[in-house]
Design a protein around this nucleic acid. Sequence first.
RNA 1: GGGGGAAUUCCCGAGUGGCCAAAGGGGACAGACUGUAAAUCUGCUGUCUACGACUUCGGUGGUUCGAAUCCACCUUCCCCCA
Length: 407
Amino acid sequence: MEIYEELVARGLVAQVTDEPEIRELINSGKAVFYIGFDPTADSLHVGHFMALCLMKRLQMAGNRPVVLIGGGTGYIGDPSGRSDMRSVMTPETIQHNCDCFLHQMERFIDFGEGKAIMVNNADWLLKLNYVDLLRDVGACFSVNNMLRAECYKQRMEKGLSFLEFNYMIMQSYDFYHLYQHYGCNMQFGGDDQWSNMLSGTDLIRRKLGENAYAMTITLLMNAEGKKMGKTANGAVWLDPNKTSPFEFYQYWRNVGDNDVLKCIRMLTFLPVEEIDKMDSWEGSQLNRAKEILAFELTKLVHGEDEAARAEETSRGLFAGGGNTEHMPTTALTDAQFDGDTIGVLNLLVACGLCASNGEARRLVQQGGILANDKKVEEIGATFSKSDFAGEGLLLKKGKKSYHRVTL
RNA sequence: GGGGGAAUUCCCGAGUGGCCAAAGGGGACAGACUGUAAAUCUGCUGUCUACGACUUCGGUGGUUCGAAUCCACCUUCCCCCA
């Protein structure tokens, strides 16, 4: 199976500007393609992960990836799919985020000699002169068309600043620049980027009379139509310090039945034929599929060792057994004890399982707290130092949160 | 530049002098049921030394016995006219 066909089979292809041309281009390994990453945080997250995988797949098929870091566009902020304006970031923050991105990407993409290259659009965007830019490309953009673009739709009601309106022009300019300087003939991106990308191919056609191509990948949505990779606490990060490998594993271990196969197909590197066989799985087999998904992705992001460890910990906790080795642990100090004892409420807050005393109180009252597998019945319950000796005390909040407390 | 409107707890959104820690919904969390899924039902959702106390309704001052509610100024946003 050739690469284009594989992308289709995995359900990754959302929209393309010219299917026959694009198929030919990437199947023959002649594409020099770019994907842009805006440095809006100090770590990549699951959304970026899809793009990284895509780059990797295309690179394996002989194409040349160009990673574009949006150090310049970061000054503006992409309004696509947003209902409010991004807060403006300081140049220092942007630079810091760019550095973090680079570090994480090296894990996925081969930046060796003659392989992938990384560029930062700050290098050319920040040098632009307003009037020159207007004269150069301004005439190529139709405000009428821009206003019709899907990515601005939501903002037409809530308000859109001129600053953000220009994002599309900057992104188009990037493509135009990369086309001229790096022979970049293709752009990939999330489906929400479609209008921005089209305007880039348009610009190249108008300015140079040549064809460049664009293709978007399907956004990873769950069965409820929400973007995946978000939790109540924010994004699922690739940085192990922001989302631990265990949490990362658990996120995928817990996806809904209807989403498992889709995720395996789109995100893992398992052969398509193998995945096709899993299509008929149901019931407990789906539960197995979730393990595969979680393991494969954790392996890609954090390495095989971490993946195995997360899996082991997970099985230990949920399937019985007592592997407490890798769960979050808090060591108490004498100061946290009242004499020889500590109350449950204080204990829960001390180890970060609860944000406040009140929350702890509620949890206990509702029967959501277990200490060494015994339900804590009273909010006045106390533990003495001997309870934390040795392996420590295993606290369980609800069904999925575990915490080990030692001295 | 002129005129009008808005800012409420995680989000949406009621509340227009005391009965307001603030309706309702969503989300989150917990319980039951389960497969670490979904659906459903129940509880719960400011803080605390907890049947009471304290701090919150964009910001700063003011009026009042008493303010989320009234007044002044400021900040931000939206709409209409130019």
